[in-house]
Nucleic acid binder design. Structure first.
Lengths: 214, 214
DNA sequence: TCATTGTACATCGTATACAATATACATATC
DNA sequence: GATATGTATATTGTATACGATGTACAATGA
């Protein structure tokens, strides 16, 4: 089948760009954003900007204070812990759902992200580390072939990214957790799901919370 | 503190009304909706309608086909099964998170929804049964005091409702599952979480899937 | 000096006009 | 008659104008 050409609307483009800016840390949590300013920057009218903003608010990345202003969402410690709890559960579910065939079909992609992540770490590109880390985990979830599960994890991942950026984890700790990816894959390959889940628990709860334990 | 007066914007109102219409089954899955028609019906311009539609699409209840039309989302069998799997996991997590104190603080509300649900069943008001059933489960999740978890469950619940309406489960089966609510509460009260989770598994997987098992 | 009130400004909320595109149907061509 | 093509129409996409509201700050009075 030929690839269908789809004309992306301006609001879709603004949505994507804005999302990237938020997730990359270019727009930090708490930053106020103005429709008019964005309209000027992107060279479009306020209408597509508004639509993008409304959607991102629905997604959970922006907070709209009616008739006043719009700001980038900031994740609280409590919420980070809440998310970690849910995330552990859902990624464990994903692991349980991955059978031999699903593993074979996805192992290449997952391994690539793990490698990319380590490479980014080795050259000290934190932004890329975070991005590839997310992609690794999401690829793992995608392998479970459960769209509802994937959707949810993707949404949570966005908020996790907000936190990661704000958090500034020390280099050695970050490196330690990144290296667990390989172990996770190995255990999955061996079919030792229990060990894999145990390691995942440590990986995620520490990866995230800072002060938060379990 | 005095209750703050908040002026709800038109788009917020449209959003709520439209959502209700979808979740109540007034607007069935697959139905096409037109911005202009809605604008006429609600007596507002297309702008607030558009914003509401975009947000509902982001929420997952509407599907936008660019430059063509907007339609109400239809849940597939596969997706229903996917959701059930996730939902079981998350509600189990909720149950694990509810300690004695949280139980005491929320038991009244949960019990009320269970009773409301049974009452609605007894008078044959299916719409109300579904609504109260949702409220029962969501109240249970809320008791876990994990906002991320609650958010996710609420989103899933919306799609579950779409399915319930389309599905038309036989009266006796529906009644059977509704009556499990009381048992669930009893087990929770006794602190027998394992039994509670086992029952929950049956309750949810059968509640939903039709042909779907496990 | 401090609290209150008024005013200017910036920003958002909504309506409307127009442009761009998809869809359906009629028409022409083979 | 079937397929392809052109055209009309309906619908969405975007820009812009105007109105409403929140916010900050100055002016006024106690």
């Amino acid at each position: 089948m030929a690839t269908k050409i789809v004309q992306k609307s301006l609001s879709d483009q603004v949505y994507s760009l804005l999302k990237d800016q938020i997730l990359s840390g270019e727009l930090q949590g708490g930053t106020n954003i103005s429709e008019e300013l964005l309209a000027e920057q992107f060279g479009v009218s306020r209408t597509p900007i508004r639509e993008a903003i409304r959607r991102l608010a629905e997604y959970g990345l922006l907070i709209i204070t009616p008739r006043s202003h719009v700001s980038v969402y900031t994740v609280t410690e409590k919420e980070a812990a809440d998310i970690a709890k849910v995330r552990v559960n859902l990624e464990m579910l994903a692991i349980d759902s991955i059978d031999e065939e699903a593993y074979q079909r996805n192992v290449e992609e997952i391994a690539r992200y793990a490698a990319d992540c380590q490479y980014a770490m080795s050259v000290g590109d934190r932004a890329s580390v975070f991005e590839k880390d997310s992609l690794f985990h999401l690829a793992l979830v995608r392998a479970a072939a459960n769209s509802a599960l994937y959707d949810i994890c993707q949404r949570m991942d966005a908020k996790i990214q907000l936190l990661r950026i704000a958090q500034n984890l020390p280099e050695d700790e970050l490196s330690y957790y990144i290296n667990q990816h390989v172990q996770l894959m190995q255990l999955l390959k061996q079919g030792d799901k229990d060990s894999c889940k145990r390691l995942l628990y440590e990986h995620i709860t520490h990866d995230l919370g800072g002060g938060f334990k379990g």
